[in-house]
């Protein structure tokens, strides 16, 4: 298993809600757990992946996501089984969408 941790600047996410789980820990897929916690303009992303040696790709994918999405104030933990960058990006966007859809506030 490889562990990767990031803390990135991101636009504040305006909505608050209960922790949210998206995706499945299956081959070529990943699950994401979203929770509040970090400062409003920071996004923390923590990855555990069974695919070794892809740190540069993860760095690019999460930097791109943090720049594009309103993920500030969110902590995102990912359990990954070799999802492609495209799948990871899709799951991240789905997660933000789901977070906003069923937000409490």
């Amino acid at each position: 298993m490889e562990h990767l941790d990031y803390e990135l600047p991101s636009r504040p996410q305006p909505h608050r809600r209960e922790p949210l789980l998206v995706g499945v820990v299956g081959s070529g897929n990943c699950e994401l757990l979203l929770e509040g916690g970090p400062p409003a303009d920071r996004c923390r992303i923590s990855i555990k992946t069974s695919a070794h040696g892809f740190a540069p790709i993860w760095t690019a994918v999460v930097a791109d996501f943090a720049a594009r999405a309103a993920a500030g104030g969110l902590q995102i933990e990912i359990n990954d089984v070799g999802a492609t960058p495209a799948v990871v990006s899709l799951r991240l966007d789905q997660a933000i969408e789901a977070w906003e859809e069923s937000a409490n506030v």
Partner: peptide, 10 residues
């Protein structure tokens, strides 16, 4: 973890 397998939160 001892078998290098990813866990799921549930």
């Amino acid at each position: 973890a001892q078998l290098d397998q990813p866990v799921a939160f549930d």
